[in-house]
Nucleic acid binder design. Structure first.
Lengths: 144, 144
DNA sequence: ACAAAACAGGATAATTTTATCTTAATTTAA
DNA sequence: TTAAATTAAGATAAAATTATCCTGTTTTGT
């Protein structure tokens, strides 16, 4: 569904959010350990998310990653997926046709549109705060 | 969504079906040209589909690919996707967790389950014959 | 039997994705 | 002001996916 990079990005953002809710900043090392991801690769992904203003990065001792408390509830999964994988997953033709459209559709156009729209609205309406709270309360997990 | 290999596999199968409905066997070269795919790579994918009995391959002069007329309506997209990409797309955790389950779910488990089940039933209920007929009648396209 | 057409399969190459390594820049605390 | 901790960024490497090439095998028409 998503690239590995995007999976790490989503998990990292949720973990950063869970910590930011508690007012804690968390280091790359802490994130990678907690979500079970390769540290250097995760650093690259966090660079992207920081550039795209999904998360804040702070250099130096006691640095790390955080999200402004008042912004956590505004961040949705689509922000992360768009930053890392782009919008191909819900924009591109399911069979890879360059010019697939309503007027000249591929054979699965209509059926896939439904699934892709479901996914799109899922990503656009699921905010990171609710996911972070599930993780915080032990109802959901980022490593298994 | 799907791998390139799977996209080619789906398009090739639809095109073979469209020809088989008319009682015509079609060569690799003809398929690759019609679906706009790299010929040698398409050959590999058709090998897989032939091994998995999704299509029949016939060697030698006047050989090519075909599907038994009475079987066309029984082939669904899931048969093709399973043969090429496997079932990861509707079985695996959306965040890549190895042991994600109802009891110990990832934070997006429930929401993704809905989308994945939509996709699963789409693939399992869409038969190749209906798609082939759309292509045949010029309502849908395999190359654009 | 033989030549030609066509698929099968193995080897190789190119590209993309994933992952690592190294050095630089930044920040803080002592 | 210097050392340590930490992210940024560029270079490189490994692995997976996509794509090509070459040789072998099968089939058919002559």
């Amino acid at each position: 569904m998503f690239s590995k990079a995007c999976e790490y990005g989503i998990k990292a953002t949720i973990y950063i959010a869970a910590n930011s809710i508690d007012g804690k900043r968390i280091s790359l090392k802490g994130i990678a350990k907690h979500i079970d991801s390769p540290e250097a690769f995760t650093a690259k992904i966090l660079q992207i998310l920081a550039r795209e203003r999904v998360v804040n990065s702070v250099r130096g001792i006691n640095g790390g990653f955080e999200i402004d408390k008042h912004r956590i509830q505004d961040i949705v999964l689509a922000d992360i997926v768009n930053a890392i994988d782009g919008d191909a997953i819900y924009k591109n033709c399911g069979l890879g046709l360059k010019e697939c459209s309503e007027a000249r559709p591929c054979p699965v156009h209509d059926k896939f549109k439904i699934v892709r729209n479901n996914l799109k609205s899922l990503l656009e309406t699921t905010n990171v705060k609710s996911l972070a709270m599930e993780v915080d309360s032990g109802l959901a997990f980022l490593k298994l």
